[in-house]
Design a protein around this nucleic acid. Structure first.
Length: 324
DNA sequence: GAACAGGAGAGTC
DNA sequence: GACTCTCCTGTTC
């Protein structure tokens, strides 16, 4: 990708993500610094749902709760490899035994880290994919128009509860953004320039990774999210009902704001009306969108037979006439 | 007070 | 013309 600011990203013994992918963001690579875990400035406060592999609590959860195998492997290393010689061979000297045991532990740790790395990178890519689909923008910031940049800024503002920063980056294309250094970002927004720079860097890293690792190679990891992006690009206008279905199909990310009550019947509930309206506003570049307007648009579907109220009408509950 | 229902006009593609 | 946004009034929960 050859973006500025990438030159400093050297590969070090303490940056395993670099080993997996030499262009990965250094702000992501801090993950393995287990002894001094603290998020970089740019990632403080990232919501778990959005970047589950990056935020420290998520990393803990990933490793300890969702993947007990990691814990198990760390606490009880796999048995040592069988001896290569006959049993009568005298046991190794204490120092040798220690060496071989620490070597095995090292290998186990290495394996654990490798698997965690793969998961983290996979999560980052998946979340970038999801955002691309929702915003209808390309995964690579270099391809963004001024409108795409504004969408991404609004999205980032919303997701990470930043104050309004999009106005400070007007009239800039994705290429312009990518040519800016962190100092330039700070010039536009003294307080949050570095945060935005960090997020943009994650996107650039993800795009670089996709370039190096084409879809065929990643099929086993997350083929559905990848094909999502490929099917939705280039940009196509989206209908509200399609957008709602997209959210419903990503329960991992959006079940807190919208979820199925009965998927077979197409009945869903909007749990957080303001959030859904905000997402729709970002998607359509309508900052003034609210639930009142969104629900009016939903009601337009009544006549068209796309959405209706379920037989037992409940607040914030709707039904697709033709379930997914 | 929030959600719901629907009319009406305007904007965008 | 289709689709959505926006504003509005009135009703229901």
């Amino acid at each position: 990708m050859g973006s500025p600011g990438r030159e400093h990203m050297g590969c070090t013994a303490h940056s395993p993500l670099y080993i997996t992918h030499p262009h990965i963001n250094p702000r992501v690579a801090w993950l393995e610094e287990a002894e001094d875990i603290k998020p970089p400035r740019g990632l403080i406060g990232l919501p778990e749902v959005s970047w589950p592999g990056i935020y420290v609590p998520c990393y803990d959860r990933l490793v300890m709760e969702e993947n007990p195998w990691v814990l198990g492997m760390t606490e009880a290393p796999a048995p040592a490899a069988p001896p290569s010689r006959a049993p009568e061979v005298s046991p190794p000297a204490p120092s040798q035994a220690q060496d071989s045991s620490s070597e095995v532990e090292g290998q186990v740790e290495e394996r654990c880290l490798e698997q965690v790395r793969t998961m983290v990178v996979g999560e980052v890519l998946k979340d970038v994919d999801t955002a691309c689909k929702l915003l209808n923008i390309a995964p690579d910031p270099l391809d963004w128009s001024c409108a795409h940049v504004q969408k991404w800024l609004l999205w980032t503002e919303h997701l990470y509860k930043l104050p309004q920063v999009s106005t400070m980056f007007q009239e800039l294309t994705g290429r312009d953004l990518c040519s800016m250094t962190e100092a330039h970002f700070r010039q536009h927004s003294l307080q949050f320039g570095d945060v935005l720079y960090a997020h943009l860097d994650i996107w650039r890293s993800a795009a670089a990774m996709k370039e190096r690792c084409p879809p065929e190679d990643r099929k086993s990891a997350d083929d559905d999210s990848w094909s999502d992006v490929m099917c939705n690009y280039p940009s196509q206008p989206i209908h509200l009902w399609q957008f709602l279905q997209e959210l419903l199909l990503k329960p991992h990310n959006y079940s807190r704001c919208i979820r199925w009550l009965n998927k077979e019947k197409g009945i869903f509930k909007i749990e957080d009306s303001a959030h859904v309206a905000r997402l729709w506003g970002i998607r359509k570049n309508r900052p003034a969108m609210n639930y009142d307007k969104l629900s009016r648009s939903i009601r337009q579907y009544y006549k068209k037979g796309i959405i209706r109220k379920p037989d037992v009408s409940r607040r914030l509950v709707y039904q697709f006439v033709n379930p997914v």
